[in-house]
Amino acid sequence: MTSTSARLGGRVGVRPGWQVATLVDAWAESPSARTLVLDVPGWPGHAPGQHVDLRLTAPDGYTAERSYSIASAASPGTASSVGPETVPDAGPTRVELTVQRVPGGEVSTYLADAFAVGDTIEVRGPVGGWFVWHPTGTTGPLDPAPVLLLAGGSGVVPLTAMIRARRAAGSRVPFRLLYSVRRPEDRLYTRELGVPHPGDDGVDVTVLYTRSAPLDARREPGRMTPADLAAWGWPAELGPACFVCGPTGFVEAAATMLLALGHEPARIKTERFGPAGD
């Protein structure tokens, strides 16, 4: 396993060509999001934060391609998920994605509603070598600095992969996640990120509700503010590695606040999912 992991750092690109993957399991992650477990034969492993490209083919040959972040931890053979009730053992060829249904969306509605267990799909990846966190240093440069994760909506997907990779690697690097969602029912990985999970000591999760909050929320509903970052994030002096992911509007706002709070631009990595904002 270490020899497989060691090669990953060098291979930050993508394996050329597409592979056919099969949907082997799926469950509702929220009323509007679905987690897909794909079996991808020959999957080379991945680093947390990377994504895959999916290609869908219609009967007339028309194809649509979209990117989806990988939710599962990088390490092969590690149970990466706690959902739904049974814990599927995410084997080395299993890749988990979580798709948020975008109303009227061409691809997300198909993946969330029609794509059935046993169906096949073309996959390419893993893609991306920039928006990644390396838990051990065997898969890339080890950064012992604390980690600040800022998620807007489904932007929590690759950031959860980082938390899962930290857990799988037994890493003690302190993590703080600020997770902005509209309403309690929109949360993804609610149990896993809600109740401290074994192995997640040192991971602090703050959910920021923008529209309506439960009684035990840490603050009133509203968009993320610099005060939230000051209260629940890391001070800039600690030089945290910052990962910001979500809709473009969220990422722009969050990255601008981080800069204003004194975080180094070079320490802020961003991934923008799409146009829609909250």
């Binding site: 869908l56 083919t57 649509a64 198909y110 096949t120």
Partner: peptide
């Protein structure tokens, strides 16, 4: 047989 039921826009 890929992505059966996908029609696209």
């Amino acid at each position: 047989s890929l992505t059966p039921g996908f029609h696209g826009r």
